[in-house]
C-alpha cells in the first residue's frame, strides 16, 4: 500500500483533531479508501499501528460500515437508493435499468471494470426520489429514462478516457 503524500499529510492533520487517537479511525479509513480505492489488510494494520490500536479494533469497524470495502470496485461507483420513498417512486426499476445498461448485478463489478452498482439504503434525498449517487455526486429524480441517460453519460466518459 502506497499512500499519496497528500493523503499522509491529511492523516497527520486529522489525528490531532481528537483527544484520543482511536477516534480518527473512520476518518483515516475514508482518507485511505479515497486514495487507494479499498481497505486492504495492510491498510487495516497500518491504521492500527498509526493509532496505537490492535488490528482487530480496526477490522471490527471496517466490517461494520457498508461504505468501506475490502476489495477493489469498478472505476465508477453507482449507488441506487433502495429504501421506501425511492421504491415508491420507482427505485427498484431504476436499479434494474442500470443493471441492464451495464450488464452487471448489484454488488458486482462490471466485466470491463468500469462500474460497480450497489443498492443502498436511504440517501436522505427522498423528496427527489428515486435518487442515485455516482461517486460523490447525487442524481435526483432518476426514473428509468434518466437512468438510461445517466448510463449513457457514464459510458461516454469511459470512452473518452479511452
Amino acid at each position: 500500500m502506497k499512500l499519496k503524500p497528500e493523503t499522509l499529510q491529511r492523516i497527520d492533520e486529522i489525528i490531532p483533531h481528537y483527544p484520543v487517537k482511536r477516534s480518527a479511525v473512520l476518518m483515516l479509513l475514508h482518507a485511505i479508501q479515497e486514495d487507494v480505492g479499498f481497505i486492504s489488510t495492510e491498510a487495516i494494520e497500518w491504521v492500527a499501528t498509526k493509532l496505537e490500536l490492535q488490528p482487530i479494533n480496526v477490522l471490527e469497524v471496517v466490517t461494520f460500515y457498508p461504505m468501506f470495502r475490502q476489495k477493489p470496485i469498478g472505476r465508477r461507483h453507482i449507488k441506487v437508493c433502495r429504501t421506501l420513498s425511492c421504491a415508491l417512486r420507482g427505485g427498484y426499476q431504476t436499479c434494474e435499468t442500470l443493471e441492464k445498461e451495464f450488464g452487471v448485478h448489484r454488488g458486482e463489478v462490471s466485466a470491463d471494470g468500469e462500474v460497480t452498482i450497489e443498492f443502498v439504503e436511504c440517501l436522505a434525498s427522498c423528496g427527489t426520489a428515486p435518487v442515485v449517487m455516482v461517486d460523490d455526486d447525487l442524481h435526483e429524480n432518476v426514473d428509468c429514462a434518466r437512468a438510461r441517460a445517466l448510463a449513457a453519460q457514464i459510458k461516454q466518459e469511459a470512452a473518452r478516457r479511452g
Binding site: Y18, L26, L29, Y65, P66, M67, V120, E121
Partner: peptide
C-alpha cells in the same frame, strides 16, 4: 472553540 467534521460511513 474548535469545530471538526467527522464522517460516518453508512450506518443508520
Amino acid at each position: 472553540c474548535e469545530i471538526y467534521v467527522h464522517r460516518g460511513a453508512g450506518a443508520y
